[in-house]
C-alpha cells in the first residue's frame, strides 16, 4: 500500500531532476539556496543552536558564499556530513560546496577530483596528555596507548610520526571526538591526538583543564579549507574569492560595522573600492552582483571577526590566531590582490 506514496514521491523527484544539469552557479541561483556541507557537529566550527540555527567558523563561510551569490546569508541549506559521507555528498552534487574542516591533501585534490579553494584554518596535529604522566615531549611517548579517530588524516600522520621516531604505540580506535573525550578522561588511553584546535576545544570542556597538557610538537600540516567539485571553475572561483574577500577585508580594515559606509561612497583606497564594487567591475567578471563582497562581509564580518566570534580567545575554545593571523602579523594569511 505505502509503496504508492514512494512512487508518488519518486515522480516528484524525477520531475525535479529534469530542471537540473546547468552549472553550479545557475543551479544555486535557480534553487535560491546554497547547499553547503558542514560537519554534523564540531565545537566552534559547526553546530546547531537550540533554535536549529547553525553557527560556527565553517558555517560562517557557507553564509558568506550564500550572501555573495544570493544576497541573503540565510539562504543556506546546511547538509550535515560525516567524515565518511562528505566526499560522496560533494561528488554526487548533493551539496554545492563542502566547508567541513577538511584537510587539503594531494590525493583529495587530484585523485578524488575536488578543487580546494584556499585555506580558512591552518591546523596541525598535536598531542594531549595528563600532566600526571610526566611527559613533556611527544618524543617520549614510546609504547603509549593513543586514542585516535579512524578514517582521518590524523591516523596516518600518527603512524608516520611514530615510525620516523622509531617508537611503538598502541592505537585505541574511536569514532567521534565525544567518544575520545570520554575514553581519554576515563584513562583508556595515555594520549589523545587530533588537530590542535580540537585538542584546545576538548581541553576547555574538562572540569580540571589544568591537569592536562598539550605537548609542544605539532606533527603535521593540516590546512583546512572549503572545496568544490573539479570542472566547474566559475563556481570554484566564487568560493575562492569569497574567502579571499573575507581575508582582504580584515587586511584593509573593512568590518561588518563599517562595510556599508565604505561601500556607499568611494574611499581613498582604490583596492577597497574595487573590492566593494564602487570602482571597477570585479563583480561582473565573477558573474555576481557588484556588491557581492559587501554582502559576504556583512554576513558575518571579515575573517578576523569570524575567527574571534567562533573560536577566538574570548570564546570558551580560546584559540590564538597563531598561523591564522594576517601575513603582516606573522601569520600565513596572504590573499592575492583584488585587481
Amino acid at each position: 500500500m505505502k509503496k504508492t506514496v514512494f512512487l508518488g514521491a519518486l515522480t516528484a523527484a524525477g520531475l525535479a531532476a529534469g530542471a537540473a544539469g546547468a552549472t553550479t552557479l545557475e543551479d544555486v541561483k535557480a534553487r535560491g539556496t546554497l547547499n553547503c556541507g558542514v560537519s554534523t557537529g564540531l565545537v566552534g566550527f559547526s553546530a546547531p543552536d537550540a533554535n536549529g540555527e547553525w553557527t560556527g567558523f565553517d558555517v560562517a563561510l557557507c553564509r558568506a558564499v550564500a550572501a555573495a551569490v544570493l544576497g541573503d546569508q540565510t539562504a543556506v541549506e546546511f547538509v550535515p556530513t560525516t567524515g565518511k559521507t562528505r566526499f560522496t555528498a560533494l561528488a554526487s552534487g548533493e551539496i554545492d560546496m563542502l566547508a567541513r574542516n577538511t584537510t587539503w591533501t594531494f590525493s583529495r585534490d587530484v585523485d578524488l577530483k575536488f578543487t580546494f579553494n584556499g585555506v580558512n584554518y591552518y591546523d596541525g596535529q598535536g598531542f594531549m596528555v595528563p600532566k600526571a604522566l610526566g611527559v613533556s615531549s611527544a618524543k617520549e611517548l614510546d609504547g603509549a596507548t593513543v586514542c585516535i579517530q579512524t578514517g582521518t588524516t590524523t591516523e596516518l600522520n600518527l603512524a608516520d610520526f611514530f615510525r620516523v621516531n622509531n617508537m611503538g604505540y598502541e592505537p585505541v580506535p574511536i569514532e567521534t571526538n565525544a567518544e575520545a573525550q570520554q575514553q581519554f578522561l576515563a584513562g583508556a588511553c595515555d594520549v589523545y591526538t587530533t588537530d590542535a584546535s580540537g585538542l584546545a576545544a576538548t581541553r576547555a570542556t574538562f572540569e580540571n583543564p589544568g591537569d592536562y597538557a598539550i605537548l609542544p610538537e605539532i606533527i603535521s600540516k593540516e590546512p583546512l579549507g572549503p572545496l568544490v567539485r573539479h570542472g566547474d571553475d566559475e563556481w570554484g572561483d566564487i568560493v575562492t574569492w569569497t574567502l579571499n574577500a573575507l581575508i582582504a577585508a580584515e587586511e584593509l580594515g573593512i568590518t561588518s560595522a563599517n562595510v556599508k559606509d565604505m561601500s556607499s561612497a568611494a574611499t581613498d583606497n582604490p583596492e577597497i573600492n574595487r573590492l566593494l564594487g564602487s570602482e571597477g567591475n570585479l563583480g561582473e567578471m565573477i558573474g555576481l552582483n557588484a556588491d557581492w563582497a559587501v554582502m559576504a562581509i556583512s554576513a558575518g564580518g571579515n575573517y578576523g571577526e569570524i575567527f574571534e566570534k567562533n573560536i577566538g580567545e574570548n570564546t570558551p575554545i580560546g584559540l590564538a590566531r597563531g598561523l591564522n593571523a594576517l601575513y603582516t602579523d606573522g601569520g600565513l594569511l596572504y590573499t592575492p590582490p583584488f585587481r
Binding site: G41, V43, A47, P48, I317
Partner: peptide
C-alpha cells in the same frame, strides 16, 4: 546528541 555537544 553529537550536534548538541558541539555547541560550546
Amino acid at each position: 546528541a553529537n550536534a548538541i555537544r558541539a555547541d560550546t
